[in-house]
Design a binder for these strands. Structure first.
Lengths: 209, 209
DNA sequence: ATAGTTTCGGAACGATCGTTCTATAAGGGG
DNA sequence: CCCCTTATAGAACGATCGTTCCGAAACTAT
């Protein structure tokens, strides 16, 4: 009965997400969304409700199609160390496709710009952080078992938390980096540190304080 | 001869900086600056030139009064490890004063929100990153000497780069953290990793790939 | 006291913001 | 065929944006 939607509606969320991701929330106008998506103003309002809700939907979409698969690698790849390696490779590949300076991680951008102003966004960010951290933890647990070293559960928890926050720094700076090797070097160094932690004798040489 | 400026002009940059720092660039209006600083619109325009220039001045001011002293600790504190410890303590103390969730690091906020849209801001961010990284490098060099271990210059460079980017993640997430211990734990874990790196025997147990 | 100079407070500008509304176009069921 | 529903494009809304402008206030040097 009704007039059929134009095909542009199929990719509405995907295209809107890209605009918010690269330009940020406040610097993106509804007109930007109209132009970038090819969907009429009313279409955007009927689909999302408003700019704030559109942003929220794009953020959820990002978690589903971008960070979801990345965290799945951490959870599913049997070799724990290899899982962490592939997690970084996943984002590095994305940045290779997008070109540098890249868009970084949508969530990393949102943490500083929007999360402090919106409870709903803050909850989404917290949920992501928890999922990522638990992914790192799962991967580290497997790595510890495979390396037969003696990291305690609380040490694994700490290291997972550290990796979560540290990689946030990487995806932030990816927005200003001009060379892919800068990202690759960080990932390599992170893995070297994890591997050092997994060395069975690390306890003997703890610092004195 | 002329009418004297009100005393509010003395703290103009300081107060304007705080607004940009906590609210971000696009979410801050010139009216917000007027209200927060107590300086008339014309005063702000005669002082800075415009909103963009005001932001640039505040960013430079932030580097002078906030990150400058922090990086000075890395460069001046004789004990290299202690220098890194005090660098983190410096920001943790600031967040203790400000309360949580805190403002994070102004520059960390700017990297994601503004740097991709402004060459001038991007240059300021790059300059900061270089200074911080070279501070970490100087502190690490002293720490290596004091621990009598065998880290190569390029390994020191890598570790300094890693710490620079990783701490960026910390100051980003500080905007959403509700417990000071979350920040303290990250700092502690970072130092544990550095200390592990400084163990003289770490080379023997390198991973196989 | 008066004239001169600069800041102050706030009105006013055009542009753009997010949002709402309206008239038109496009198909499916009677 | 006509009607009904819904999406479209775009006009229009009030609010707010960054910026400019102006009269009144405030202090000094004469």
């Amino acid at each position: 009965m009704p007039r059929p939607r134009l095909k542009s509606r199929e990719n509405l969320v995907q295209n809107a997400m890209w605009v918010f991701w690269t330009k940020g929330y406040y610097a993106t106008s509804v007109d930007d969304l109209v132009k970038a998506t090819g969907v009429a103003r009313s279409g955007i309002y009927s689909e999302f409700g408003g700019k704030a809700e559109a942003f929220q939907s794009c953020l959820a979409h990002y978690r589903k199609v971008v960070t979801g698969p990345a965290i799945a690698i951490l959870n599913d790849q049997e070799d724990g160390l290899q899982a962490i390696r592939q997690y970084f490779s996943y984002f590095i590949d994305k940045h290779r496709q997008h070109g540098l300076p890249g868009p970084g991680c949508f969530i990393a951008n949102v943490v500083t710009e929007v999360a402090p102003h919106s409870e709903a966004v803050d909850r989404e960010v917290s949920a992501h952080k928890a999922k990522l951290q638990q992914g790192f933890k799962a991967a580290l647990r497997r790595a510890v078992g495979q390396a037969r070293c003696d990291l305690s559960p609380s040490e694994i928890e700490s290291l997972a938390n550290f990796l979560t926050i540290a990689s946030q720094g990487l995806w932030s700076y990816a927005r200003t980096m001009h060379e892919l090797t800068e990202i690759e070097n960080f990932a390599r160094d992170a893995l070297v540190l994890v591997e050092a932690k997994l060395s069975p004798i690390q306890e003997e040489y703890r610092s004195d304080r």
